[in-house]
Each structure stands twice: as C-alpha cells, then as structure tokens.
C-alpha cells in the first residue's frame, strides 16, 4: 500500500507580502527563507510517514506541483522520512486554477500506481481556499475524508477516522482508496534529522511534465481581478489607565458598552 502526500510551497508565515499592479511578491528579512512548506502540509507529511512506520504502508511519496524551486518542499519531506518524491513541473502553465490543479495531482497519483491513501493539508496559507482535497477526491473518484483529526484504524481495505467538525467529531469508516485532509491535532511533526537532511539533499527527484501526465489545463475559471492590501486600521490602540484595577476594569467595560459589542 502506497501513500501519497501532496505538498505545496507557500510564502513563509512571517514574510512581508506586497502587491503592486496585481502582482504579489514577498520577502522574509527575519528568517531569510521567503518560501516554506505550507504549514498545514507538515502534518500531512508526518501522518504519511507514520502510516509507513506504524501501519504497514510500503512507501510514502511526496508530490508537489509548481516551479523548479518548489522542489525544496519535497526535500523537506524526504528529510523528514518520505521514501521518494516527485516534482510536477508547471512550466508553460503558470496560471492554473484549483480544479485543474486537482486534475494534475489526481493524474500524478494515478501514475504512481497502487496508492491507497492520498493526503493534503487542510488548506494552503496563500490561496486559503481549503477545497483541494475534495477536488482531488472527485477527480480520482475516491472517497473524500476531509478535516481528519485522528486515524483510529486502518486495514488492508478500510480506514476509520475522526473528522473535526464545527459541532463535534464524526467517526466514519470508509473503504480504501481515500483522499484525506488532516488538521493540526492529528500529530506533532518531527524535525528532519541531520542524516535525513543529508540524504534528502543527495536524493534524485524526478520531474514529470503535464505532457507526461496527459493533462492539459484550461484558462482559470476564477479571475483574481484585483489584489490589494488590507485597508489600514483607523486610529491606534487606546490604553486604559486608572487608579486601581477596579477603576481600569470599569473604564474598559464602559468603552465596550459604548462600542455596542456586548
């Protein structure tokens, strides 16, 4: 049984993001690393590796779709313990919408063969749509299991998981193959070991083109007409002062009643 983890490269959380003429750029002067593994995907990678370590999966394959430098996120996956990785090049298809991206990932998962569990993070912190796992499931015709917080049991042909929903936790059993998205509660991602990093840096990562996958992409179904910065917040913080704690509390509560938020 093979497991595929879909990983995306995103701007780092602490990156400063700017937009000019609808073109988004970013830099991270603090960490010096402007691009990272999408934070939600760290849980995906970890869970994919655990399925191999603890539940009899034979391989855990990391997959990404993007530019040449997005291979970096695959090396992170390899350093953590993925057995191999595949880069799908977006050359000639820089603007791909969610549905076509799902078609690309689905075709790659099929090309890997014998995959029983495909996983994605809950959402990516750039597009923030949170729809990719379901779209990939539909493109493959596999059962979707989204927002998974725990895998209770996995056998040769079925899986039981807990899905974290607004009103509680749903326990659900499905036949394999499935496409899962996982939330943070599912695990605590490991740090890559020094040996892991060395091994990952030496690993050969094959690149597949859209032609290799037999997928063609259409014009995006969604246009980002205008991208812009948040309007600056009016005013600055009003610090509440007072002679005593009770006095401060009284003043704060007065303000909140005036704001009509109570």
């Amino acid at each position: 049984m093979k497991v595929v983890v879909c990983v995306k490269q995103t701007p780092s959380t602490t990156a400063t993001i700017s937009v000019n003429d609808n073109v988004v750029t970013w830099e991270d002067t603090g960490s010096g690393k402007p691009n990272v593994v999408n934070p939600w995907d760290e849980y995906t990678i970890e869970e994919g590796i655990r399925l191999k370590e603890n539940h009899g999966a034979t391989e855990t394959i990391a997959l990404t779709f993007g530019s040449a430098d997005s291979v970096d996120v695959l090396r992170t996956g390899l350093a953590m313990g993925c057995t191999s990785a595949v880069h799908i090049s977006n050359e000639g298809a820089e603007e791909v919408d969610a549905l076509d991206t799902a078609a690309v990932l689905a075709a790659a998962i099929e090309k890997v063969e014998d995959v029983k569990v495909a996983m994605c993070g809950k959402q990516a912190i750039d597009g923030d749509s949170g729809v990719m796992p379901m779209l990939v499931a539909r493109k493959l015709g596999w059962t979707p299991l989204t927002f998974v917080a725990a895998i209770n049991e996995i056998t040769e042909d079925s899986i039981t998981v807990e899905r974290l929903l607004e009103n509680g936790r749903q326990v659900i059993t499905a036949k394999l193959p499935v496409v899962m998205s996982v939330v943070k509660e599912i695990n605590e991602p490991r740090y890559p070991s020094f040996m892991g990093i060395r091994k990952a840096n030496r690993a050969t990562v094959p690149t597949w083109s859209l032609d290799d996958l037999g997928v063609s992409v259409s014009a995006p179904r969604v246009n980002w007409q205008k991208i812009y910065s948040l309007p600056a917040r009016e005013g600055s913080v009003e610090m509440i002062d007072g002679d005593s704690m009770n006095d401060k509390a009284k003043k704060l509560v007065d303000k909140l009643f005036e704001e009509k938020v109570i």
């Binding site: 959380t13 937009v19 988004v24 750039d126 969604v222 007409q225 991208i227 948040l230």
Partner: peptide, 15 residues
C-alpha cells in the same frame, strides 16, 4: 476574499 493568511484581499470573479 482574504488571501495570503489574511494579509491581502482579492476581488475575484468567475467570468
């Protein structure tokens, strides 16, 4: 919709 972890906004349309 908010994008890039809420740092930007985007006006989007399905043409």
């Amino acid at each position: 919709r908010p994008v890039y972890a809420g740092k930007l906004l985007s006006d989007t349309v399905i043409p």
